[in-house]
Amino acid sequence: MRISYREAMRMALHDALASDPRVFLMGEDVGKYGGSYAVSKGFLDEFGPERIRDTPLSELAFVGAGIGAALGGMRPIVEVMTVNFSLLALDAIVNSAALYRHMSAGQFHVPLVIRMATGAGRQLAAQHSHSLENWYAHVPGLTVVAPATIDDARGMLAAALAEPDPVIVFEHVMLYNVEGELGDAWREADLRSARVMKSGRDVTLIAWGGTVGKAIEAAEALAADGIDAEVVDLRVLRPLDDATYVASVRRTHRAVVVDEGWRSGSLAAEVMARIMEQAFYDLDAPVARVCSEEVPIPYAKHLEDAALPQPAKIVAAVRRMLGGAAGASR
């Protein structure tokens, strides 16, 4: 079945609401408006206003209320319009959701799912376009995931709802309209493992969320030059599945990390450090990364494009790594 990422996410939400009376959806414009990215269109009529709750523009209160409702036995799904807006709820997420199990020595836990849009590409400018996944991936107590494929959009939500602790689901805004084939793999979606999307011998491209497609495009371009790139989709940003990407790097001996976040203090930096710690002697070249330029994401299309990781930049990074002869040595 060929469906869009939006449709896959919508099916996942629908399943969750239909199968578990503890599940409810809460956020800005999730009801009457149908969801700012139209993911929950029609849900208000089907599930009613108690379970599809439009909230005021009070990120701190409604994310915090999600925490309280989770503590009280519900399985809330809270939608935050963008990761930029989630900063208004950072206190609730970092100072409460992530800490209650620990501070209470396991007496309380917070089975809360927070969905938020992330990333650039729609010319929404600096206050709607950032990628701050690494902020959340820094925090013990949180699980952070970034479904990049149709199968994961369809399958990861159920896995997130099965977690007894808070899970943040990052949905890249450029993925909603992407279409693909929904197979059966979504039924096995977990929140622990990275996935090799395409195998290759010469270099490992490590990406997640909105950059997975760009890494695959880059791998296709490199293939034309005879460079065989492997692509790993991290899928889960905390806890990182070191085993999968480190094993890949041990096979290819080279790695480029592609991260839409800014370079300084990035998740890319963390992945690179772990490769260095665990596979230093397997490397044939220093690990490289392609991140966003260190500017607020600008509005104008050509500037926005220039600020972000692009397939051409990934290809260039790989070529630099392999030397001017573009893989001829292999």
Partner: peptide, 9 residues
């Protein structure tokens, strides 16, 4: 906000 959520639950 957590109290509000507990009440909601």
């Amino acid at each position: 906000p957590i109290a509000v959520g507990l009440a909601l639950a």
